[in-house]
């Protein structure tokens, strides 16, 4: 494992820690999109079906279980925790996220890695992850008051995707010299969706201003 990949995984993990920290310490999920979190549950469960069929390493298995477990926990807090659920920005979190699922599934059937159940679902999870942030970005645009932890969460999530691209470039030259269209193009799309957010996040950080996204 190279340093970019490790940094990407750690950034991803840190983003989840930040989100859980916000939820548990402030007892609030204001500004967090339940739609995006639900999509992540689907992404992780469909991607990590190979937990049952293939052992790669302790690190790999532990991370997969952490990603599945924390995404389910976050949705649990937002839907069922009696205090936290009352802080959910329900009226602003209106993206019809279920509409993203059929096109991603059809795309996975048309362009799977291999035509087997696990590889089709893996491809589906890659396509769905690429667009899963959209409800969250829309919610941020609609929020007049984005708190620091929410801003940091989305920034770390975007940084994780950017680091994965660097990891692929590094692996291409040092290991395989093989082209991997499905994750590369999906990963580029996913990272590009954060471009606008990154711009305003870094600008607000440099100017010591509160983060606001223009609608």
């Amino acid at each position: 494992m190279n340093i970019f990949r490790l940094a990407g995984d750690m950034t991803h993990l840190l983003s989840i820690v930040v989100l859980l920290l916000k939820i548990r310490t402030t007892k609030s999920c204001a500004g967090i999109s339940l739609k995006t979190q639900e999509l992540y549950v689907i992404v992780f469960i469909t991607r990590y079906l190979d937990l049952f069929t293939r052992y790669v390493s302790f690190y790999n298995t532990a991370m997969k279980l952490v990603f599945i477990g924390t995404s389910v926990a976050i949705v649990w807090y937002m839907r069922l925790h009696k205090v936290v659920k009352q802080t959910y920005s329900r009226d602003e979190d209106t993206f019809k996220h279920y509409l993203l699922i059929p096109p991603c599934f059809i795309l996975a059937l048309l362009i799977p890695l291999e035509f087997t159940v696990t590889e089709i679902l893996w491809s589906f999870s890659i396509y769905l992850e690429a667009v899963a942030i959209l409800p969250q970005l829309l919610l941020l645009q609609r929020s007049s008051n984005i708190d620091n932890l929410t801003g940091s969460y989305v920034f770390l999530l975007g940084a994780y995707r950017a680091l994965y691209i660097v990891n692929w470039v590094y692996r291409f030259f040092t290991e395989t010299h093989k082209i991997r269209w499905i994750p590369w193009i999906s990963g580029l799309v996913q990272t590009a969706l954060y471009a606008d957010f990154f711009y305003y996040y870094i600008k607000s950080w440099k100017n010591h201003e509160k983060l606001r996204l223009p609608a």
């Binding site: 990949r5 995984d9 790669v56 991370m63 990603f67 692996r171 395989t176 082209i179 269209w181 499905i182």
Partner: peptide, 10 residues
């Protein structure tokens, strides 16, 4: 002809 995925990636 997509290459098989590296199974070590998350």
């Amino acid at each position: 002809n997509e290459q098989p995925r590296p199974h070590d990636e998350l």
